[in-house]
Structures are given as structure tokens and as C-alpha cells.
Amino acid sequence: MTQLKRSARFAVGAGVAALLLTGCSTGSVADTADTAPTSTVAAADGPRVAVAYEGGVLIVDGETLEVVDDLPTEEFVRLNPAGDGRHAFVTTSEGFQLLDVREPELTDLVVEAAAAGHVVRHGGKTVLYDDATSDTTIFDTESLADVDGALPDAQIIEGVEAHHGVSVLLEDGTFVTTVGDASGRSGIRAVDADGTEIATSAECPGVHGEGTAQGEAVVFGCENGALVFDDGEITKLTSPDEFGRIGNAYVSENSPLVVMDYKDDPDMEGYLLTDIALVDTEAKTLEKVELPDGVSYTFRGVTRVESGDAALIGSDGKLHVIDPATGAITASHDAIDAWEGPSEWQQPHPAIAALGDVVYVTDSANSTIVALDAATGEVLATGELPEVPNEIAVVG
């Protein structure tokens, strides 16, 4: 496989390296909203959905939900849109492998990583994080749209202490990354484009996930709340429970309101959750909201739609539309059959992704996929899949 040229590697500078040496850390797919397509050809072809299954990735037409191609890969992979309207990154044992959904083709282009982790898209940058080294690889997103046999040049910011983490690069060059080591993760650190420390916090045990809201306010989950990096400062928001773990942020870059997952029982078995957290990055508040009886979800089951609302696929099989200001369910639409939560997070269970106000939901028990209009609940298309779906990523 063709791997990213190491000549594209840049040190963060002595100042940043020294800062990171004193640091701590974070972690999974929080997923931030995809950036607008930059490839005219890709946009004209319409949306496509990549669907991971055990041993491969299906490419599905986003309008008809017909299977376009079936690409073999490793037994378990994860999917993240690259943000360019054409590609997704498939995390494998080799690293971040570039998937072209237009050809379609699982290319030989790989960003080498011993433990490929988070992919963040923001401000025209696509940011990859290697948990095995804590190195961060940064591409100009639009440069990925027209790759021809080789990956574009990338900036690589070397990490210091390996941990399950995540990084984001803001439009002014501010670099925000998690801090930790093999023994645990404790917070975040921000440095400016010159490598000067702006802010740091060690008040985020188990820091995990990232989301960038309106005005480039960046939110990270903690085992006891959340951190908000905004305008050069870090604010700690404390959970209402002694243990109130937040691991994923569901954001709209057009709203200061963030919906996050929430777990208040450290001994809970399984992965079904019954509460959400609402963070207001302007007011700097965090509120826990209990979902109605019978409504539960997993980390794969929440997204944001174009209207700014959150969409959640509940274990009752309904697509619930949630007001991010109040946490109230404003509409519930029939989507798939009721389902039970997995005993391990890697196991197939319903997943959700959105493009505009169109929401795609997989039904692992029946190997199907459905597309709905989140505003009206209209079923736009349904499709049968030849394999049991796991994770999905919509590109368009």
C-alpha cells in the first residue's frame, strides 16, 4: 500500500514539544458534521453511504439505497467521512485507508497508524489521530478530493505520550489536543500557531471525543462533565451526578448548542443510554435530560440535521427529533423494528448518519437501511443489504 510520505512530517516546534511533555489525554467517534463538498463532480453524483460489515464495506446509493459495490476489507473497520464530498477514511490495522465512494474503490492510499483513531473535520482541515503515538496528521480537506495515485502533503504534529485521544485545528492555527498517557487521560491543551500555550486543563478525567460548535467553541467529554475551549479559555462544566460520563458530542457548527451522550452509572451493563446532556457553549451550562420511558440509544444512534435539531434512533425503533435547547422530543417517526442493545460496543447495532435533513438508519437485525426526512418523517427509500450492517458514513 502507498503510505503517507514521512517527508511531510513537521515537528510542532521546541516550544510545543516542551508543553506536551508535561501533558495528559482523550478518545471515539464523536461525530462532527461533515463539511460541504468541494468537488463539483462528487457533489453532482449525489450522496452515497458507506456501510461497514464483518469483512467489508458496502457502497450504497444515497437516493435509491441500492448497493453499488461490495469492497472486501478486514474483519472489523470503522468509517469516517473525509469531508471532501468524495472519500471516507477506513480505520484498519494499517492505519487510515482512503475509500473512494465515487469509483468506488478502497484505494491503496494509507496514512500509516498503529492504532488509527478519531477523524475530525473542521475549518477546511481533516485531522487524523493515532492513538499509538498521539501523532496528529492534518490535511487540507479540499486536497483530498482530487487525489491521483498519492496522498497530498500533510502536516504531522508529533505527540509525546500515547493515549486514546483527539485533536482539532482551528481556523486561526490554534491547535487543541487531549492530554494523557497509557495510565489515563486527564484533560486538554491549546497552543497558538507559534507554539505558545494558550490554555490547559487537567480537570477532565477520561477525556473523550470532540465537537466544534458555532464560533469555534470546542467541547470535550469527561467522566464528570465537559470542557469547553472558547475564545482562548477553558471552562469546566460539571455533571449533576458524581459520575456523569460524557463521551461523544453531536454538534452543528451553526449553533452554540451541543447534544452529548450521558451515563450516570459506572457499573451499568450494556451500552444502552437513557439520558442525554445539553451543553450551551455561549452560556457555559450543562444540563442532564432524561429521555421518556422506553427510549434508549447508543453512541452510534445520534446525529444533527440541517435544521439544527438532533435526531436519535431509539431502541423502540423510532427516529426521535430532539430540540437541542430543551432536550424535548418534538417528533417521533417510525423507522425500523425495535432492537436490543449490544453487549460489546463493536457488535452490529443500529447506526445513524445525516446529510442535510435526510437521515439514514441501519437495521442490523434485518440487514436493511432506510432514509427518512427528519422534518416530516417521510420514508424516502428503503434498501436490503447483503450483509449485516455495522457502522455507516454518508458522503455527499
Rank of each mutant, 00 (worst) to 15 (best):
G95A: 08
E340L: 13
G123E: 15
Q97I: 00
Y129G: 06
N366D: 14
E306D: 14
G55N: 07
L319P: 05
Y297Q: 04
P324D: 07
N224A: 07
L169S: 05
T177L: 08
R102L: 08
S143V: 01
T92K: 04
P37F: 09
A44M: 00
I198V: 06
G317P: 13
T178I: 01
H122C: 04
D61M: 10
E287Q: 10
E203C: 00
G27M: 02
A277M: 09
K5T: 06
Y271M: 12
L144F: 07
P266S: 04
P104Y: 03
T32Y: 09
D45R: 11
A310K: 08
V12E: 15
L319Y: 13
L98F: 05
G211A: 09
L272V: 15
V110N: 01
G27D: 07
D181C: 03
H118S: 11
L237N: 01
M1Q: 07
L106D: 01
A381Y: 00
Y262W: 14
E171P: 13
V207M: 01
H333P: 09
V305M: 14
T22G: 14
D194W: 04
D100Q: 00
L99E: 05
W339I: 14
A14F: 00
V191K: 09
T177Y: 00
G396P: 04
V57A: 13
P389M: 01
E282Y: 09
G209I: 02
A33I: 08
V111M: 03
A113K: 03
V120L: 04
N224H: 13
P256A: 10
P37N: 03
M260N: 11
G159Q: 02
D153K: 12
L278H: 06
Y360G: 11
T330F: 08
E223Q: 10
V228L: 07
A82E: 12
I157P: 02
T200L: 03
A393P: 09
I392V: 15
G232S: 05
A202F: 03
P256R: 01
T136W: 08
A132E: 07
Y250F: 15
G211E: 07
D337F: 02
F175G: 05
V57N: 03
A82V: 10
S315F: 07
T274D: 15
I157C: 08
D316N: 15
E378H: 13
T326F: 02
A154P: 12
A325H: 13
D153N: 15
D69Y: 11
L71T: 12
L19Q: 10
V77G: 08
L286Y: 04
D130M: 04
T137Y: 11
Q214D: 11
T298G: 01
F229N: 01
Q346L: 15
G244P: 07
E384R: 07
P266G: 10
A116V: 03
E103C: 02
G270A: 11
L128E: 00
H208W: 02
A353P: 02
T107F: 00
I276D: 12
